[in-house]
Design a protein around this nucleic acid. Structure first.
Length: 432
RNA sequence: GGAGAGAUGGCUGAGUGGCCGAAAGCGGCACCCUGCUAAGGUGUUACACGGGCAACUGUGUCGAGGGUUCGAAUCCCUCUCUCUCCGCCA
């Protein structure tokens, strides 16, 4: 949620920052324009209602005093009978106006950080650096390398399209990667591991910005106002919803493994083959709650922590900064890590690291006191994938592929794979 | 899933229609006293939003939402959560 005070004091600055994302955001009929109009209406209604309430409270108190001392209060009572109904009506009107205002505010995205480059879509994202040496030889796609151990037919039969079943060494590799990533972030980067529910209620989804705007992207539970989480960011950030923290508690750093569920509405036809775009996938997520002054410093660090996973797995990648038109709703700045996939001869997103400034902190009411007696202010939040596990598995298969069909595994993985150094070539038909 | 009990400030806990934004205790903070420590004394100590340069002031908040009433922590309705017992279950 954008800052109400800034919204009132310098709407021009905010409007400029918003229009960098997309001019439509500030056009006629946009949530922004609605909010501007509703704010005025909302405040006027509130003042009228409060004036009447003050009158009612004053007279009611008088009636109480008179009754106690045995005096006659029928004059006041008669007067208040009329005022009462009017008060209720005005109060309801004021509440409705405030509700509409808040709804409009919730639909306004986070204004961008100044360092975000201009641009309309992903083509304008800016590459910042590369790591590793991409192999240039001809490598099969991961689904060919995986063979019958990546079973998309079984996934479709059990659940539907975009679901999969992993068998044997592939299932083990999925599990090994979870462990490796969590261990790395806990032991080397100082994150506290948490384990959280994969279902979140509406309030929780509101807190991190998935709702109210993006309900169509979520799986909703029938008969309940609850959803499957699209990322661990949701439950982990909301761990602190409604809390006032002490400055000394910051920064808070958590990593978590969860399954993630996405409807992928609107991505019809994209990545239909293979593991790249699934309705259910595994991810280890990094989440930080920090002092707003250090937020962007923290983003650099957090991005480095995600990069460390790729480096330890010896996977070539590049870092891009998303341009204005490509940054997500709640984020003020985002780096994507893109891993080299030799089977597709391209870089594919494997991690997205975002700084949300105080946007989520305000929405979810996660605050802290800078001074012991000071006014609580919203914390800054950040998160990043560290990493998406299915896509990491894909990258390992394609980058580790050997001409004989086997897959060489990087050394750090060997202990997690029970000593296995190679995944044998896929069998020719039949389960291996 | 069934039956019952409950939800009050940072915490414990009183409060069954007006004198209650809320007793008391603990904790926190400030000051005083004391050679240090300990003990003691006095005062103070919720949040949000609106108006005001400010002093200050208005409104709302006793799990959430609605209702009754001139007036609700207190009465009524709905919901959420917690606890106990029963059932079921990894």
């Amino acid at each position: 949620m954008i800052d109400r005070n800034a919204f009132r004091r310098q709407p021009d600055v905010l409007q400029a920052a918003l229009s960098r994302r997309n001019m439509a955001l500030v056009a006629e009929g946009s949530a922004w324009q609605r909010a501007l109009a509703l704010d005025v209406e909302q405040r006027r209604g509130k003042q009228q209602a409060e004036a009447l309430q003050a009158e009612r409270n004053r007279v009611s108190k008088l009636i109480g005093q008179k009754k106690r001392s045995g005096e006659d209060a029928s004059g006041e009572l008669a007067r208040m009978a009329e005022v009462g109904a009017e008060t209720t009506a005005l109060d309801h009107k004021a509440k409705a106006a405030e509700e509409a205002f808040t709804q409009a505010l919730l639909e306004i995205p986070n204004p961008l950080h100044d360092s975000v480059p201009d641009g309309d879509d992903e083509d304008a994202n800016v590459e910042l650096r590369r790591w590793g040496n991409p192999r240039a030889d001809a490598v099969p796609n991961h689904w060919d390398i995986g063979g019958d151990r990546l079973d998309f037919e079984a996934g479709a039969r059990l659940a539907g399209s975009r679901f999969s079943v992993l068998r044997g060494p592939m299932a083990r590799l999925e599990r090994a990667l979870m462990q490796l990533m969590l261990d790395l972030h806990v032991d080397r980067h100082g994150y506290e591991e948490v384990w959280v529910p994969a279902i979140a209620n509406r309030e929780t989804m509101m807190g991190t910005g998935q709702l109210p705007k993006f309900e169509a992207d979520l799986y909703r539970l029938a008969g309940e106002d609850a959803f499957l989480i699209p990322t661990a960011e949701v439950p982990v950030t909301n761990l602190y919803r409604g809390m006032v923290l002490e400055a000394a508690q910051l920064p808070i750093r958590h990593c978590a493994y969860t399954p993630c569920f996405r409807r992928e509405a609107g991505s019809a036809g994209k990545d239909v083959r293979g593991l790249i775009r699934q309705h259910q996938f595994d991810k280890v997520e990094l989440v930080q709650l920090v002092h707003p002054d250090t937020a962007h410093e923290a983003l650099e660090q957090l991005t480095g922590h995600a990069e460390a996973v790729l480096q330890t797995l010896e996977l070539p990648y590049r870092v891009v900064v998303l341009c204005a038109g490509d940054v997500g709703f709640s984020s003020e700045k985002t780096y994507d890590l893109e891993v080299w996939l030799p089977g597709q001869q391209c870089y594919r997103e494997i991690s997205s690291c975002s700084c949300f400034g105080q946007f989520q902190g305000r929405r979810a009411q996660i605050r802290f006191r800078d001074q012991p007696k000071g006014k609580p202010q919203a914390v800054a939040t950040l998160n990043g994938s560290g990493l998406a596990i299915g896509r990491t598995l894909v990258a390992l298969l394609e980058n580790g592929w050997q001409p004989d069909g086997s897959v060489r595994l990087p050394e750090v993985l060997h202990p997690y794979m029970g000593g296995m150094q190679m995944i044998p070539a896929a069998g020719k038909g039949g389960a291996s």
